[in-house]
Structure formats: structure tokens, C-alpha cells
Amino acid sequence: MNSDSPSDITCDHGPCTGAASDVEAASDVETETETAADGGTTITDPDDEAFDREAFTKVATVDEIPAGEGEGYTVKGIEIAVFNLDGDFYAISNRCAHQRAPLHKAGDRKINAEDTWTEKRGGVNVEDCTVSCPWHLWEWDLETGVHEASGKRIGSFDCVVDGEDVLVRI
């Protein structure tokens, strides 16, 4: 499998612009060499020699997902949303557990936003590392996939930046 092949992933939006490159938080997640569910290691630091690049799929370059926004992709048949939190990238299931709203639409500008108060439908919260669903504002922890109020959990995925590439392991 060529995990960099553009045919592996599909961007859910039109052309994206913006820039971000900091991967510090994502690279802090795992340090021990263990076997992941997909057979690869759990190493998520691209600079670690044990990092298994082939276990990841490139979904975008860092400048394709603007800071504070998300994009939706299918990777190996799994819908995911990838968010850029001021340079830290997170990947989570694209479907809210409540009613299957597409989470990558969080932060979209509202119709006649100038006549509302917040202008956006849900969105990311950098400080709390969460995303609020665009339909009913269910707030999902981007690291754990947990909705605190209900205890429900959706999939979260390793997401790292290798150079300019945003990589996700399904």
C-alpha cells in the first residue's frame, strides 16, 4: 500500500488554505514501543527510528487545514475529521454519536451569521482540546473521543505531522 497516494483519501471540503506546522502535542502521546491494533508500533514520533511510517496514511499537508478548522476524509472506508488546533493536529471519527452529524463541519459559518451571536456552528476549543458538534454542540475531547456529560466515546486516531504531511493511523 502506498499510504501517500492521493487516491487513499478524499478531502471533504473544497480547496483549503492556511498554514500550521507544530506537532509537539501529538508527538507526546506515546513513547513506548508496543504493537498497535493494525500490527504497527504505537510510536507516534516521526523522528523516532522505530516510527512505522507505513502504518500511517497521509491525509493532507499542514497548510491544507487552516488553524481552528477541520477537514473531513475517508481513509480505508472510515470517515474521520482532522482538526488543526493552532498547529496541533487531531483525528477523530467524523460522526457525532448523538445523531451522526458530520463533525468536520464544526466551525462552518452560519447562514446570515452577522445576525447571530457566535457566527459559527459549533467549532474547536483550543484551550480545552475539544470540538463542538455543528448540530447540537455535543463537545468531544479530541484526544480521547469522550463526551464528558454522557460518557459516550467515539473513535480517536493517532495523528502526526511528518515534515509538511499530516498523517493518520486508522
Binding site: K110, I111, N112, A113, D115, T116, W117, T118, R121, S132, P134, W135, H136, L137, E139
Partner: peptide, 24 residues
Amino acid sequence: GIKEGQEGLFTQGRAKYAADVREA
């Protein structure tokens, strides 16, 4: 009860005209 307060009334936006409704 709403995380965004009064914005709950306009969680999705605000339709003023027919074109807004069709877009939504």
C-alpha cells in the same frame, strides 16, 4: 442550558428570506 447561551436559538444560523431557507 445551552453552552453558547442565547445562541441556541440560532445554532444553525438565521433565515430571513426564502433564499436562506432553501440554502439551509
